[in-house]
Computed example of a mutant assay.
Amino acid sequence: MAVMSDPLLSVDGIDTHYGESHILFDLSLSVGEGEIIALVGRNGAGKTTTLRSVMGLTPPTSGTVEIRGEAIDGLDPNQIRKRGISWIPEERRVFGGLTVEENLRLAAHSGDGDQSAGFEEVYDQFPRLDERRDQQAGTMSGGEQQMLAIARALLGPETDLLLLDEPSEGLAPQIVDDVADIVRELNERGVTVLLVEQNAEMALGLADRAYVLETGRIVHESPASELLEDRETMESYLGVK
């Protein structure tokens, strides 16, 4: 587990709206270099909106978002991606009609110039994808598609911070463990992770620190291990007994 260092990502007092609907309220959090941070909460709490706000997909209407002290709120998602932040959305969203290799080649060419120098490294890291280079992504299992989504995010501009949205959704328990191992290995290789997860026990088992979100507000912050042992808070805010 990493020790809290200078923030890589700082979110300070953001409010975010969808049209007339106010979703996030004065939300602040920080992610230190090398940390895994879990953002947990019930469905509809605003977890995905938080990631979308960081990535510039649903820009905050007030407050600031900074990466290494540089304000990025107001930048478009492509500019934010070039600053080392990569987002893996809920439900993976791989190109099902394309092969594994075609999915990865699209990602490798998505930045400034051809980033395929790291292409074989991705296959070394994900041997199962190497075995399925020529298989259509839509025919793979949910766990394999999640691996592909993670691998795809690591191509293109270098990733310093990975925003990972519900990676365990719809996966069998054993595959959830495999995905957790991948996230842990990426972190050990130097990738900082902000993890949104409905599966609180999985997320807290991985994370250094945790934030609990309820109706668009941060209501609890602590070391992840402390929250995991705090059954009263787990039940009250997350419905975990």
Rank of each mutant, 00 (worst) to 15 (best):
V3K: 12
V3L: 13
S5V: 02
L8P: 06
L8C: 13
L9D: 04
S10N: 13
D12W: 00
I14L: 05
D15I: 05
T16S: 14
H17G: 01
H17T: 02
Y18S: 04
I23V: 15
F25Q: 02
D26F: 12
S28L: 08
E33F: 09
A38E: 06
V40F: 10
G41S: 06
G44D: 09
R52E: 05
T61N: 08
E66Y: 04
I67P: 01
N78A: 06
I80C: 00
R83M: 09
I85D: 02
S86G: 13
P89G: 14
F95R: 10
G96C: 13
A107S: 05
H109E: 08
G113V: 01
G113Q: 03
G113N: 05
D114Y: 09
A117W: 07
F119N: 07
D124E: 14
R128C: 08
E131Y: 06
Q136W: 04
G138H: 11
A151T: 00
L154H: 12
G156A: 00
E158V: 09
D165E: 08
D165K: 01
D165W: 04
L171Y: 03
D178I: 05
L186Q: 03
T192S: 13
L194K: 01
V196C: 03
E197T: 09
Q198N: 13
N199V: 00
N199Y: 00
N199A: 01
A203I: 12
A203F: 12
A207H: 15
A210W: 08
E214T: 05
T215N: 11
T215Y: 10
V219G: 07
E226F: 11
E229P: 15
R231M: 12
E235Y: 15
S236V: 14
Y237Q: 15
G239C: 11
V240P: 09
